Simulated assay, not measured.
Amino acid sequence: MTDGIPCMQLRGGSSKGAYFLRDDLPADPAERDDLLLRIMGSPDARQVDGLGGGHPLTSKVAVVSRSGDPDADVDYLFLQVVPDRPVVTDAQTCGNLLAGVGPFAIERGLVPAAGDTTTVRIRIVNPAVSLVEATVQTPGGRVRYDGGTVMAGTPFPAAPIHLAFPGGANPVFPTGRVVDAFTGLEVTCVDAGMPVVLLRAGDLGIAGDEDPAVLEGDDALRERVESVRLAAGAAMGLGDVRELTVPKMTIVAAPRHGGTVTTRTFIPHRVHAAIGVLGAVSVAVAVRTPGTVAPGSADTLVRVEHPTGTFDVAVDLDPDGAATRVRRTTVVRTARKLTDGLVWPRPASTRPANARPASIGEATG
């Protein structure tokens, strides 16, 4: 620890996280999680003493290793580090940080560059094992980050990274129905890589295109959405979800800007400035399936509108009502390397939060 721990920070999709090789972290999950809390700066809403950015979208960790699965090159474990609580959870994966896994694997030598593009086969190990292929730009044998692909939710263009998700054998509607009713509201529970509950904006008395800050500031709305989440989580087989970050709660409405559907997503208590990759996939599957609460569409390409733009998802389904399965989905993301070096965690034994504050002479602003 005194020599620092190898760490790379990347912007992956519309999130930002710290990427580690599994062998550079403790093997024991409890020791690993304690270390990550100290690296990221939790528990502290600002995370001022660590790498985290004081928001769930910037307090994320990717742990990558060589895979023992013959169908994959690397394993990817996602860990959400809660900013203001001493909590690290692997209850969900993250499709945004997934965009950085391929570049990280190539940079760390886990996968050799193979021509102008390199395909990295990734096994996502949480919450359930799934596979994805990431195609990364590697001209001259090096990862290319600069490019002209503009991705909503990020301010600057970068090189495209194509993510292709093969379908699975399990139906995508975990309750066995395309519409359920919880606390007096009709919802659709869908899991096409991310557990999501869809609610109609009109049923909540809102337009569905509000600014995230407006929705976060509506205490009555947040309480109602949370009551639905708790009931839906149990019905989806997730158990008591009070301390979990899933399911996500996506409010759907008619499109406003030429897309297929308008969304606002609680993740689950803050409102996403965009939408998560696998969350968007789950929404797109619901849009493509007749009878759900989402606006329907027969088009293979679903354009999901969110607070900062749109997210395109190409969906190929095996349609069968509540037994619908996904054949394949594809999306385009971007990622960018921000830093690469060593990180020093705060000591395991530090002053408690209520320790003596700095004096005026010590406080330099």
Rank of each mutant, 00 (worst) to 15 (best):
T2S: 15
D3H: 13
P6T: 13
L10H: 13
G17I: 00
Y19S: 13
Y19A: 13
F20K: 02
A30M: 05
E31L: 00
D33W: 08
L36I: 12
R38M: 07
A45T: 06
G50Q: 10
L51A: 08
L51V: 13
G52Y: 00
T58E: 11
S59T: 10
R66F: 06
D73A: 11
D73C: 14
Q80G: 03
R85L: 10
P86S: 08
T93L: 14
C94E: 02
G95C: 08
L97Y: 04
A99K: 07
A99N: 07
I106C: 09
P112C: 00
A114P: 02
T117C: 04
T117H: 03
T118D: 06
P127N: 04
S130Q: 04
S130N: 02
E133T: 15
R142K: 14
P155H: 13
P155K: 08
A159E: 07
A159N: 11
F165P: 04
G167W: 00
G168K: 08
A169Q: 02
P171V: 13
G176V: 11
R177K: 15
G184F: 09
L185P: 01
V187L: 07
C189Q: 06
C189S: 10
G193E: 10
P195S: 10
R200K: 15
R200H: 07
G202A: 15
I206M: 02
E210C: 02
A213N: 01
G217E: 08
R222M: 10
S227V: 00
V228D: 01
L230I: 14
E243S: 14
T245M: 01
T245A: 15
T250S: 13
T250H: 02
H257R: 12
H257T: 14
T263G: 06
T263K: 01
R270V: 15
H272L: 06
H272G: 11
A273K: 14
G276L: 00
L278Q: 03
V293G: 09
A294C: 06
A294D: 07
V302H: 00
V304Q: 01
G309P: 07
G309L: 04
F311Y: 12
D316M: 05
D320A: 15
R325F: 03
V326G: 07
V326Y: 06
T329F: 11
T330N: 09
V331H: 04
R333I: 11
T334S: 14
A335R: 00
V343I: 10
W344L: 15
W344E: 05
S349V: 15
R351M: 12
I360D: 11
T364F: 11
